[in-house]
Design a protein around this nucleic acid. Structure first.
Length: 286
DNA sequence: AGATCGCCCTGCTTGC
DNA sequence: TGCAAGCAGGGCGATC
């Protein structure tokens, strides 16, 4: 389940392995993998061919590769199970290979988008004046972006009439936080996921943001989180941050701070993991 | 207009 | 054993 740190690992891999290369033949093997490219897979392949890849960029969980010789970018999202692999051209196709990008050089490797559940995909878009693919203009900067505005985030957070975990997952408020790192940051901040955002003081929201950054940086340093074979970085190597998780997936196991068994609660068609002692639920609001 | 919810998808796990 | 339900869940669009 790639979140920001995993996507950043993939971005670095793309920068290293496909940056500067010129695209040759492109094969779209599953229409759903290009569903955001409204003109369809044939158009996607035709428009990509012959263009040279620039340096891969990232915002939150979105990746894009600017085309060095045009004002457009290839946008990618890994969704739940997506992988971007640089493979030898003669390597056997993966079972869930969705898109293949060949290059017009003699390096002998190709870029593959592999995705079991097809929540992710690739598409081509014009850039905004800021160099962002136009369809992700609404995605907020992420906490690792040097231009992320901490004070503006804290103000916006307090103005929201919602609960803190919903806010952390809102990609228009800040991007890159998914279910895993939301639970990790809330555990570190000792905040219950249903705490109303309006009740967070400025120091408290600053502390929470700090924990979001800390957990992302720790995951990034470890090469990304992985729970199973679904997540693989651009070189085909799994991350291993999962051993360091304090909250996510630890139902029934002792809280690493106080020893109380961790709990899991259904939440928004997914799960929230928390310590019932360290993360007290807010008082019921009428 | 901000907040919320249903839906998309596949494979592994669980339970009867 | 076999089948069905549950679970993983990001993001978008519809709805309130």
């Amino acid at each position: 389940m790639p979140e920001l740190p995993e996507v950043e690992v993939v971005r670095r891999g793309l920068e290293r392995w496909v940056g500067g290369r010129t695209v040759g033949e492109v094969e779209v093997l599953h229409p759903r993998a290009v569903r955001r490219h409204l003109a369809g897979g044939t158009d996607f392949a035709a428009r990509l061919k012959g263009h040279r890849f620039g340096i891969a960029r990232r915002r939150g969980k979105y990746l894009w590769i600017p085309l060095a010789d045009s004002d457009a970018s290839v946008l990618g999202h890994l969704g739940m199970s997506g992988q971007l692999l640089v493979q030898p051209e003669d390597a056997p196709d993966e079972k869930h290979l969705r898109i293949r990008v060949r290059f017009e050089d003699g390096l002998g490797t190709e870029l593959r988008f592999v995705d079991q559940r097809t929540f992710g995909g690739l598409s081509l878009h014009d850039n905004t004046p800021e160099g962002l693919p136009d369809v992700i203009a609404h995605i907020a900067r992420d906490p690792l972006d040097p231009e992320f505005d901490d004070l503006a985030f804290q103000t916006a957070l307090r103005l929201r009439r919602t609960t803190v975990k919903r806010a952390l997952l809102d990609q228009t408020l800040l991007s890159g936080v998914g279910n895993i790192y939301a639970d990790e940051a809330l555990w570190r901040a000792r905040l219950h996921y249903e705490r109303p955002t309006a009740t967070l003081t400025r120091p408290r929201s600053a502390e929470l943001l700090g924990h979001v950054r800390d957990v992302m940086n720790a995951a990034l340093a470890a090469g990304g989180t992985s729970f199973d074979s679904l997540y693989v970085n651009v070189n085909g190597e799994s991350g291993y941050f999962d051993r360091s998780l304090d909250a996510y997936g630890r139902e029934g196991q002792p809280c690493r701070r106080c020893g109380t068994p961790m709990r899991r609660r259904p939440w928004m068609n997914r799960s929230s993991y928390f310590c019932p002692r360290c993360q007290r639920p807010p008082r019921a609001t009428a």
